[in-house]
Design a protein around this nucleic acid. Structure first.
Lengths: 211, 211
DNA sequence: TCTGAATTTGACCATACGGTCAGGAAGTGC
DNA sequence: GCACTTCCTGACCGTATGGTCAAATTCAGA
């Protein structure tokens, strides 16, 4: 009988290794893009020999695919807030807060996603066509209902969603530009709050959900 | 004495060759990123031998730098409309129209710029710190003046500018995603007009410039 | 303790990349 | 026609990359 508490089981160590590699890969893919990233650099960041990466992830592409899928999952979770809301001010406001927080905490992931889509989504095209499309249609229906109920102005739901994505992800994808324009310093807590407030104010007022 | 009209002078042909290479490079860099792009592929797209590229542009980086600089110039030109305007509704509205049109006509350029900034702006960091910073401060001053004159709500000018950039460039950078969500078809003329109208409506109403 | 599976890793390989170069072609000015 | 510069390009080079592999190590289960 094995001890009830071991330092770490074999399965746990496998998960830890995969997590370590995925974390390093996310960082390197975000900084260099898929083409610019090298397995050697990912291995160095993870502190493992390169051959070990290929034991857990047979190819560079399979590793990359896993990174992108993880990001997509985090993204989808932010939708729960949207759905549970009572009206546009609450739902869209909370969605903006959630997505801004993701941009702040997972900027690398957002960059990898952006890079993938910009290059024509060679790896996750199927996700765009299935999961993302269904998600978008579901949210568009909610927005349309809010409009019909007179709780916000008539706005094309698709373009509103694009605007929400664009604005919130901009703080991750173009974080370096924002940081440079901020005098070289990352946004402070106060500045992040101001960013969230500005985005929410403009959009919520812009769709007539604050009256 | 040379003929007054030749088919093409040597200097003209040099400019044409450079333009041809830059155009091909913009496309390939946008599709594959800096790391993923190869001089061979750029040469194939341009229909020239690879060695010829190195005659006009000594290194891959010098070619890339020129591509990014060209995009930046197009960007800056859109600012003229902003400056000449009488008030926020006219100025910001025209700026949105101009930037949306750039996203539509030069999506590759926008993608290259986005990719460059996302990867930490290794090549055009000096532009961010000088030209872009001055541009931003100048435009922020205008916005601040409009606010003081009571022609729009008090909004942090920086975050408003980020929102303008994010929203308009999203239609270029994430054009593939939008196209996929649009059923696989590029936005029609009508849909582009709707996009412009939606963006302008939300932002201009959101900053209180439509009352 | 023994056995077999899972894991780790240094050494290695074929390929593809950015860049070079010499030599030829084409055009220009006199 | 001649000399000179600019332009063009096939062949080549050193390097770095993604990926392989066989030998070594670790570990779980009996």
């Amino acid at each position: 009988m094995p001890p009830i508490r071991r330092a770490s089981s074999k399965k746990e160590r496998r998960q830890e290794s995969e997590k370590l590699i995925l974390s390093a890969a996310e960082k390197v893919f975000a900084e260099a893009g898929f083409g610019g990233a090298t397995m050697q650099l990912i291995a160095d960041v993870a502190g493992l020999p390169k051959a070990n990466l290929h034991y857990y992830f047979p190819t560079k592409e399979s590793l990359y695919r896993q990174v992108v899928q993880n990001i997509f999952q985090i993204w989808l979770q932010a939708a729960d807030i949207f759905d549970a809301a009572d009206g546009p001010a609450e739902g869209i406001g909370a969605y903006i807060d959630a997505k801004m927080e993701i941009s702040r905490r997972h900027p690398e992931g957002s960059k990898v996603w952006a890079s993938e889509v910009m290059h024509g989504a060679p790896v996750i095209q199927d996700y765009l066509e299935t999961t993302l499309m269904e998600w978008t249609e579901g949210r568009a229906a909610i927005i349309r209902r809010w409009t019909e109920e007179g709780r916000m102005d008539p706005i094309d739901p698709d373009h509103l969603l694009y605007m929400l994505w664009a604005t919130t992800q901009h703080y991750a994808d173009f974080g370096h530009q924002i940081e440079t324009l901020n005098g070289g310093a990352p946004l402070s807590d106060t500045q992040w709050d101001a960013a969230k407030a500005s985005v929410k104010q403009i959009i919520l007022r812009g769709i007539g959900a604050l009256d």
